[in-house]
Design a protein around this nucleic acid. Structure first.
Lengths: 185, 185
DNA sequence: CCCGAGATAAACAGACCTGTCTAATTCTAG
DNA sequence: CTAGAATTAGACAGGTCTGTTTATCTCGGG
């Protein structure tokens, strides 16, 4: 087996549980029983719970970026439209029944130490997202793609945070309206 | 003693520790030893740790709103200037040595259940903040104060989230630039 | 078919957690 | 000053947590 199926299965289940219930609140035993995997198998593949958490975050980061890619291509091929489609995709995410916030915001919150692996993975993900946004704003012909990408990132993160704490899923649409203004400048 | 001094001291210390280290990661014993207070005194005033957490969040909410009020009045009396001064105040917050993110974003993340007291307090705080922002945008003569307030909230929350995860304190200035554009519309 | 790597179950260690109990002590209001 | 309320230290219960150990089992590639 090139990369253990068990390992992959474990990471996927762990990612789901950590996202839904938080990192500290989710015990290893719960992940194991949910995945139907023995404890020793976990510690054969990972040095510690933190190591598993980092792997779960890396897995989720790829998944999120791929999801975003698919959403954008499915919605429109117009460069400016793709920028705005970002917010429609997020809006759909907020409205999912099992929406429980951004796993990376949670990771940064639960692991405040900047040198903690989970905190680093959160920072890495946001950087990747920012790079992807910059690519989008360049494609849309923005006068200052980097600045616009930063502003879009602020809106997306803000909408996510507000949707998480207040449950106001409408935040996505509000953010989209702001983005339209910023995009028109 | 109308409201116990001990109780207040406990809530203040608890608030600091929960903010800096997270809720699950901060044990009761640590709060007690830091506050120099006996365990039975805690359980005399609070029914449970969750109850203490809720009190700490209420305390922090008042503190934050007062802090914001003071910052704004100290910076300018110009109505539009006050809206932008919001971002300067946040920027200063991000640059504090002990900055570790928004306690309410953390609370919403660590307690995903919407009916959990801590989650409710997070939602309450964001609502209060939104109301305060609406008051500001009304004062600034915005054409649609509610919409502008929502957009400002998104930018502030987004900047906070980004500053937390990536450590990029510059997010405050980036948000301010976006706010200037939205304010000019 | 068979061997070895990977997976398994279950007990275990040791730490930490919230919350309770007791009994002595300190504070405060009248 | 005194009586009652508040606070204290410390042990304790009972649970959960991460991570280890051991001994057994499963299964796929040669």
């Amino acid at each position: 087996m090139r990369r253990s199926r068990k390992r992959n299965h474990l990471v996927r289940k762990a990612s789901k549980l950590f996202e839904a219930r938080g990192f500290h609140a989710t015990g290893i035993d719960m992940v194991l029983s949910e995945a139907g995997i023995a404890k020793m198998t976990l510690y054969n593949h990972f040095a510690s719970k933190d190591d598993l958490i980092a792997a779960a975050l890396r897995h989720k980061s790829l998944k999120v970026l791929n999801w975003l890619e698919d959403e954008l291509t499915a919605r429109t091929s117009d460069p400016k439209g793709r920028v705005l489609a970002l917010f429609d995709a997020y809006q759909d995410w907020f409205e999912q029944d099992d929406f429980s916030g951004c796993m990376f915001q949670k990771a940064a919150g639960e692991f405040p130490a900047k040198d903690h692996p989970a905190h680093k993975e959160a920072a890495n993900h946001k950087r990747r997202l920012y790079e992807r946004l910059t690519h989008l704003t360049e494609g849309a012909g923005a006068t200052d793609p980097a600045q616009l990408a930063e502003q879009l990132l602020l809106l997306l993160e803000g909408a996510t945070a507000i949707a998480t704490s207040t449950g106001a899923t409408i935040a996505g649409r509000r953010a989209k309206r702001a983005a339209e203004i910023l995009l028109a400048v």
